[in-house]
Design a binder for these strands. Sequence first.
DNA 1: GTTGGTTGAGAAACGCGTTCCAGTGCAAGT
DNA 2: ACTTGCACTGGAACGCGTTTCTCAACCAAC
Lengths: 321, 321
Amino acid sequence: MANIRDIAKMANVSVTTVSRVLNNHPYVSEEKREAVLQVIKEQNYQQNIHAVHLSRGKSNLVGVVVPFAKHPYFGLLLEGIANEAIEHDYHLVLIQTNYDEKKEQEALEMLKYKQIDALIICSRISAWKVVEEYASFGDIIVCENASDRKKVQSVYVDHYEGFYQALQYLYEKGHQRIGYCIGRQSGSNSYFRAKAYQDFLHEKQLPFDESFVFYENYYLEDGQKVVNQLSYLDLPPTSLLVTSDVVAAGILTACQDKGIHVPENLAIVGFDNQPIAKMMKITTFEIPIVEMGRKLFSQVKKESPIKHKELDITLVERETV
Amino acid sequence: MANIRDIAKMANVSVTTVSRVLNNHPYVSEEKREAVLQVIKEQNYQQNIHAVHLSRGKSNLVGVVVPFAKHPYFGLLLEGIANEAIEHDYHLVLIQTNYDEKKEQEALEMLKYKQIDALIICSRISAWKVVEEYASFGDIIVCENASDRKKVQSVYVDHYEGFYQALQYLYEKGHQRIGYCIGRQSGSNSYFRAKAYQDFLHEKQLPFDESFVFYENYYLEDGQKVVNQLSYLDLPPTSLLVTSDVVAAGILTACQDKGIHVPENLAIVGFDNQPIAKMMKITTFEIPIVEMGRKLFSQVKKESPIKHKELDITLVERETV
DNA sequence: GTTGGTTGAGAAACGCGTTCCAGTGCAAGT
DNA sequence: ACTTGCACTGGAACGCGTTTCTCAACCAAC
């Protein structure tokens, strides 16, 4: 296959001119431009993309770190990121970590040796210190409140505030025994929610019962597990905050099977406002996930000094409270 | 940052030797190997990945074409592909097409100019003729029955057979008016299912009613739409084959809202056996999606002559028939 | 002592596009 | 008439690792 030098020769111009035609640089006369274009067409010439990357020192590739591609939350996020990437002529390198820190590390390494120009971390595992070491190699954008971090950018929802609001909402509906279900126990979003929970209990002078907190809930199936655990409690919570609508849906279904009436026996508040929440009429706090995905990508290579962007959560009242 | 030549100088060896150390080639004495390793460590040296790609003419990147990342079917497929890719030290470039043929074309172009070494097309749009033109540039693997195609590889389930079996199953349960819901109207999987449907009607001497076929059903929300349309029919089907469990779940929920009893008034058979099918006790034909994803990736760069691989579908009887 | 295989190592070629810099030619401005 | 300065062109340097050739050294077998 012909390379740029061959094309230059055949078109009787310099390599530089061919490059300029290729990249739509100005300062090429119309005749030469057409001559070059003609030869390119004849030869069915293609730039060697690796040479372009080597030369430019960048690749128009952005890494996206997700724990699982199959989880609807990350599916939605990916959708938003992908759609925005298309519009900016970037491609996405998908890095699925399964919450394995090594995989995240690898992604950071890819940033270091410039296989990717930027990295979007949808759910972080490594410590801030580690992540920030890599910030000098390219933009790092996280999907969590990192407004106090100088080196990375972020797009997020205020989970502290959201959780607090949700607790307040249930409290006003008369609930005093409020539990919650969450995904992983560590992680910054979980931290903020736990904090909001503790602060709320403290403010309302409510006791903390550790059996009211359920960890490792990600999927529909996990709802069943929660309802099971609930049945072992002497004094179960009267309401549950569930940090993913799919889990909330699982809980709701399990309740229906067990004859637990929702919301009479158990009130449920979901998060995300995913399609399933609408379908099953789950009261939920809407998180604009797809939009968040788009915004996450928009942070890539942006000049603007706004490094941190917060999106709003809104309550969607339906029938589970 | 130091390059391979700098390292060579510092270690008092040739560039070749450094390269050999880097790539674990034989013919490097232990002393030199260690000297090189030492310098590499000291200098915190990193290969320039673009130079490696340029030199090798490949990138260890595999493209994955999906219409939407947010659809659970593709989420599951992606999960399988991603997990297999990790094990083979490949990375994935996600190309979301939104069923826009241009995007798919772009993906094929990426294969042509070798930005990616292989391409997995999870749902094809372009004509075979177009796709096959690109087969010479790298492996192309599709997720549909392409057993009669020489140039591409495939991993698939027999949708003709699956659909036929499902129809047979409903027929044996006493249903004569069987409708079906499907995603896009074109597409090879849809073609095989439509064919199975026609063949079945013909065999059983049943009339074809075009109002029994519902197109463009992808998500939970679409189930509502189907049930609405159903209510306008004078003589609606007594049973429905639904090519995605999420849509089946949507239909089931909409039926519950409308007081349509399932399975008495309407029997529903889903496909995929996704978590939601289990949760909502939907009778469904299981498609091993995650495994299919893994197998799709396994076809990449495989020596074996097995270019086409069929996976089995199995009936999971639950409560919607 | 000669032939031959094996191991170790380096020079040079190869893959290829971008960009800096120098320079020419022509037109507008003073 | 003379200076600016813009439009256009191309040579050469740069980014960097892999791989092929070639050759030397060394040991073993004949």
